[in-house]
Amino acid sequence: MYTQALDSPAAAAADAHERDRLERFQERIDRDEKIEPKDWMPEAYRQTLIRQIAQHAHSEIVGMLPEGNWITRAPSLRRKAVLIAKVQDEGGHGMYLYSAAETLGVSRGQLIEQLLSGRAKYSSIFNYPTLTWADIGAIGWLVDGAAIMNQIPLCRCSYGPYARAMVRICKEESFHQRQGYEIMLTLSRGSAAQRAMAQDALNRWWWPSLMMFGPSDAHSVHTAQSMRWKIKRFSNDELRQKFIDVTVPQAEFLGLAVPDPDLRWDESAQHYVPGPIDWSEFHAVLKGEGPCNRERLEARRAAHETGRWVREAAAAFAEKHQEPLRAAQAG
């Protein structure tokens, strides 16, 4: 698209100036400097971050739904209080992340609209149903465990507001994983029916959890550039491997079997080697064909619509109380 413009010397100079700016930007990144909202940044860096942070925020918000499903049916008051606190945290994490995305010049209204219209993506894992109480345990242990694995390196992301939001989120997230594992532990030490319920939950959540790390490196379009910009610090496959290595022994401790007949320990590499992942499932869920895609979006839209009158009332109230204030200031 620049071929024509390059014909003029002024445009060539502008092009050189742009290259120079890009180089200086990359040098800042290489020196591990943080980029802040008002700093100059390449448009592609800005757009990549908006996309990633928005997807992350939407995931937190949609992620409240599968767990919210069990709040009224938690088996004890303690479990119920814990689950409410966890779901409230997810809402809070969504807020931190939306705020971080907004520093890049996108409005909250636009972000919400992108989610509700179905154009924005969110983590495919939240399109699976929570069929039993054990699913709440499995989500905390596996889904939050995978999220933590992804998020800890993001605390060192080159974009300041995102990195700071992630520090806060990671601090809060570790209780999520531990409460999930505690549920799994209780069930796996319980009756035969409870053990079976725990095993069933692991069977259903294991593969989707592995898919949370995204496509394999060979097929990941954004990885190389994101790593150069230090938005991403580890590749999808590296993080997935780390997750498998720490999680398999945790499953063994529970006395549960990871649903992967090909899984084996490679002594020389000191890693677990999993069987092949069924990526067709991942892409189908991403495309909207997961078990709960439609239900999740409908729930978000309904929440947005039924909350409309509250937002309008609050705005009208604020407006009404602004007027006397303005009058007083003018006088």
Binding site: Y96, R164, A315
Partner: peptide, 21 residues
């Protein structure tokens, strides 16, 4: 951090829920 609110009072309440759990 930051947040959206209709007025200052609501901003304080949202800040409590969002940043002091």
């Amino acid at each position: 951090g930051s947040l959206h609110a209709a007025d200052a009072r609501m901003a304080i309440e949202h800040a409590r829920d969002t940043y002091t759990r």
